[in-house]
Design a protein around this nucleic acid. Structure first.
Length: 435
RNA sequence: CGGGGUGUAGCUCAGUAUGGUUAGAGUACUUGGUUUGGGACCAAGGGGCCGAAGGUUCGAGUCCUUUCACCCCGACCA
């Protein structure tokens, strides 16, 4: 993509109401803009990031045997009355009426819909297991949306539901999804922990949360530095007072606290803050029994499906990547999430030698399948650098003054190093880095 | 849902206490010129029903009433 042909409205100042780094930088970098409380538009750059994350989620789930579906976003109220959640979820569900005065709900989650979909269509143990998922908009009418994409009302979430003929098989799938989620977050380049969690309002026994570690996270965790153990404090401290006191502490305050207990691997435990980006539950027969979704077992007996459910906050991940990877200057995208992996910066657009090299390199990288931005804007050097840092391209090729001596530089966003490279070797060097 | 706050240019904000020419600054934008390795400089421009509605007044950004929106702290939640 050429900088001169795209739409990336970057700004020097952040809106005064943005407090988190991800919120500030995603707005300043021209990724998103706010439409209303908890409502965001994704501009071209933000949309690319969102789609990259979505693609990785989809690829790993498909590899694990899950099937993608798409459920309707507007759902009849009756669906929620039958499960009792119309009342249970209360005002968190946004209710609307159509022209006939019929009541509908904007889907906050889809257990009911998926059970209705599978019920009477999958009728034999021979057709099980089945794991269906979608990556679709959700709406939860939060009492207090905040923190940009971190806690929106409308958000993109992957929700998956599996159906099984036995509890053992459901647990097998639960473990398979745990491993699949680990692959996804690893591919995204994130430092994360899987922690035991409260099962919350969704219900059912056995649930695990996936947290991206970041100082600004809303959840407080206990993690082991040596192994991959982690737990939400809600599950390991007994008293409410103790939990509340810990929740109230800032990241810095938590770092000074000592934990007496040691990890089962005998290493020390520490407090960390986490952003919940994934959650998996063993539902067992909670919904299938309530909604009378049955199958015939080997003996021809009707039984409710054993179920599990699996969620990933896709749009929240966009924010989580930045919460974990940023500095004072802006975003630092991981290789897998960067809207463009390489930014070719022509320092002075009036220098034909710079333009020629930039165009040639751009053509070669695009041909090689590398997501590349060609900064062919008329801005000055300093402006372009600030912009590149704010947007957070992992690598910027600086084609500038040194070209007279046959040199260009590669600016590494993460380390902020300027690496001189012979202009003749730049293509090979970049290909090495982006591998 | 309790408590607090804010709506003035695309963005960040003055101005409102004590009503009074044509509503300001910075930044962004347009044009011309000079610049060209870390968000340049000079000059000239464009851009506002002062969130909305109603009221008081000779006169309202400023006072009154209603309303809408957004933010912060807490509770709740993924």
């Amino acid at each position: 993509m050429r900088r001169s042909r795209t739409f990336i409205p970057t700004a020097k100042e952040a809106p005064s109401d943005a407090t988190l780094p991800s919120h500030k930088f995603l707005i300043r970098g021209g990724f998103i803009n706010q439409q209303g409380a908890g409502l965001y538009n994704f501009m071209p750059l933000g949309k690319i990031v969102l789609e990259k994350i979505r693609a990785i989620v989809k690829e790993e789930l498909d590899n694990a045997g899950c099937l993608e579906v798409q459920l309707s976003f507007v759902t009849p109220i009756g669906l929620w009355e039958r499960s009792g959640r119309s009342e249970a979820m209360g005002k968190e569900m946004l209710r609307i009426k159509d022209r006939h005065e019929n009541e509908f709900v904007l889907s906050p989650t889809n257990e009911e819909a998926i059970v209705e979909l599978v019920k009477n269509r999958v009728t034999s143990y021979k057709d099980l297991p089945l794991n269906l998922y979608q990556i679709n908009t959700k709406f939860r009418d939060e009492a207090r949306p905040r923190y940009g994409l971190m806690r929106g009302r409308e958000f993109l979430m992957k929700d998956g539901y599996s159906f099984h003929s036995s509890e053992e098989d459901m647990i097998r799938e639960f473990h398979l999804m745990e491993e699949t989620y680990k692959k996804i977050f690893t591919r995204l380049g994130l430092d994360f922990r899987v922690v035991a969690a409260d099962s919350g309002a969704i219900g059912g026994e056995g649930s695990k949360e996936f947290h991206v570690l970041a100082n600004s996270g809303e959840d407080t965790l206990v993690v082991c530095e040596a192994c991959d153990y982690g737990a939400n404090i809600e599950t390991i401290f007994e008293s409410e007072e103790e939990i509340d006191a810990l929740k109230a502490k800032s990241y810095d305050e938590l770092q000074e606290l000592k934990i007496e207990k040691r990890c089962s691997c005998d290493a020390e435990l520490h407090f960390k803050k986490g952003i919940e980006v994934g959650h998996i539950f063993q539902l067992e027969t909670k919904y299938s029994a309530a909604l009378e979704a049955h199958f015939s077992d080997e003996n021809g007996r009707a039984k409710p499906f054993e179920m599990a459910t699996f969620g990933i906050g896709v749009s929240r991940l966009v924010a989580a990547v930045i919460e974990q990877n940023h500095d004072e200057e802006g975003c630092i995208w991981t290789k897998a999430t960067a809207p463009y992996l390489v930014n070719i910066m022509i320092s002075n657009i009036k220098e034909t030698s710079q333009v020629e090299l930039g165009e040639a390199l751009y053509a070669k990288l695009v041909e090689s399948g590398v997501d590349t931005m060609l900064d062919d804007s008329k801005e000055r050097f300093g402006f372009k650098m600030k912009d590149a840092e704010l947007i957070g391209f992992p690598y910027t090729v600086i084609i500038g003054k040194e070209l007279e001596n046959g040199l260009v530089q590669i600016f590494d966003r993460k380390t902020k190093e300027n690496i001189p490279v012979a202009a003749d070797n730049i293509y090979g060097k970049i290909m090495e880095l982006v591998k």
